[in-house]
C-alpha cells in the first residue's frame, strides 16, 4: 500500500461521509480565506506609520454582529442536520443484514459467522451485502474501526453494541482498535477481506465446518443444565424459551419488555433484573460462569428456538447499542 492523502472508499457509507466532509471543507476554506484575507489586508493597509498615530475609535455595529452570528449559525445547522442524517444511516442496519458476532479482548478480535466459521483478527465478507456486527468485550473498552468503510463503534464490556456496513469494493482493508486498551493496543489490528459472493461462498465451504453458533449454544445449554428448569413444554419452574425471541414478555413488576439479544443476555447474567410475570426469581446468575462467547452462543440458540421455523437472519434491528440499567 503506497502513500496516499485520502482514504479508499469501500462501503456504501464512505461516499456519504466524504461528501459531507467536502461540504465542511468548503465552508472552512471560505471562512479561512475570508478571515486571513481580511487580516492581511488590514495589517498592510493600516500598518502603523508613526508612533503618534491615533485612529478614530469605532464602537462596533449591531447589524454586523447579527450578520456574523446568524449566517454561521445557519451554516452550522446545515452541518448538524446533514451530519445527523449520515449518522442515522450509519446506525440503522437493514433487516436483511448478515449477522456476525464480535468479541474483543486484549488484544485480539474474535469474529464468528452464523454459519460456523470463526476468525481471529480477520473477517471475510461478501461484496454488496449489508453486514451487521453485534459486539461485546471480555475486558476493557475497545473500538471497531474500519477506515475504508468510515465505520467506528466502541465495544464495551457488559453490553452489546452494534454497527453495520455494506462493502462496495473487493479488497483487503485495515481493521483497527481505536479505543486505547493497554499495552498492545496498536497491535490489536486485523484485516477485512471483501470477496465476490461466489468466492465468499467457496471460502465458507472451504472452512472446516465448525458448529454454528446456535449448535454450540445448544450444547452449552445442555452442559449448564438449563433445561432442568426451562423445560421446552413449559412445565418447568422457569418459562419455556421457544418463540421467546422478538416476543413481548410481561414482567412481574407489571411492565413489559421486548425479548431482544440484550434482554436475553441480561437474563442470563443478572436473572433477578427482570423477572417474568408468574415466576419466582429462582434462577442463579451465570455471571463469570459463561464467557462472552458462550453468552452469544446461548443467545443464538434461544433465537433459533422458534415454534414455527424462522430465517435466522431476521433479527430485529436495535438502534445502536443496547445498554441495560
Amino acid at each position: 500500500m503506497g502513500f496516499r492523502l485520502f482514504p479508499e472508499q469501500a462501503s456504501t457509507l464512505a461516499p456519504q461521509v466524504d461528501h459531507l466532509l467536502f461540504f465542511l471543507l468548503a465552508a472552512a476554506a471560505f471562512f479561512t480565506v475570508a478571515i486571513f484575507g481580511a487580516i492581511f489586508y488590514f495589517a498592510i493597509r493600516y500598518r502603523r506609520r508613526s508612533d503618534r498615530e491615533l485612529p478614530k475609535a469605532i464602537h462596533g455595529s449591531v447589524p454586523l454582529e447579527i450578520l456574523w452570528s446568524v449566517i454561521p449559525f445557519g451554516l452550522t445547522m446545515v452541518m448538524f442536520t446533514w451530519g445527523a442524517s449520515v449518522y442515522f444511516t450509519g446506525r440503522s442496519a437493514p433487516a436483511d443484514a448478515i449477522q456476525i458476532d464480535v468479541v474483543a479482548k486484549q488484544w485480539m478480535w474474535k469474529l464468528q459467522h452464523m454459519e460456523g466459521p470463526r476468525e481471529i483478527n480477520e473477517l471475510h465478507i461478501p461484496l454488496g451485502r449489508p453486514i451487521k456486527l453485534t459486539m461485546t468485550s471480555e475486558d476493557v473498552i475497545h473500538s471497531f474501526f474500519v477506515p475504508a468503510f468510515r465505520t467506528k463503534q466502541d465495544v464495551v464490556p457488559g453490553s452489546y453494541s452494534t454497527t453495520w456496513f455494506q462493502p462496495t469494493k473487493t479488497g483487503k482493508y485495515h481493521l483497527f482498535c481505536a479505543e486505547y486498551c493497554g499495552d498492545r493496543h496498536s497491535g490489536m489490528t486485523g484485516w477485512i477481506y471483501v470477496m465476490q459472493p461466489e468466492d465468499y461462498a467457496a471460502w465458507l465451504s472451504g472452512e472446516t465446518p465448525g458448529a454454528t453458533l446456535a449448535e454450540n449454544g445448544r450444547k452449552l445449554f445442555q452442559d449448564l443444565a438449563c433445561a432442568n428448569c426451562h423445560k421446552p413444554d413449559g412445565s418447568g419452574r422457569c418459562p419455556a424459551l421457544a418463540g421467546l425471541f422478538g416476543s413481548t414478555v410481561s414482567l412481574a413488576d407489571g411492565t413489559a419488555v421486548t425479548a431482544d439479544e440484550a434482554y436475553i443476555r441480561e437474563s442470563i447474567l443478572r436473572p433477578a433484573a427482570k423477572v417474568v410475570a408468574g415466576y419466582q426469581p429462582l434462577m442463579p446468575t451465570f455471571q463469570g460462569q459463561v464467557t462472552e462467547e458462550g453468552v452469544l452462543q446461548l443467545v443464538e440458540y434461544i433465537k433459533s428456538l422458534s415454534p414455527e421455523p424462522k430465517a435466522p437472519s431476521q433479527s430485529r434491528d436495535r438502534q445502536g447499542a443496547v445498554r441495560n440499567p
Partner: peptide, 18 residues
C-alpha cells in the same frame, strides 16, 4: 473550524480517536 468537523455526527464517527 475543524471543531465543526468533529461536532458533526457523520464525520466524527470516522475521525474520533484518530
Amino acid at each position: 473550524l475543524t471543531g465543526l468537523f468533529v461536532a458533526c455526527l457523520g464525520i466524527d464517527v470516522h475521525v474520533t480517536d484518530t
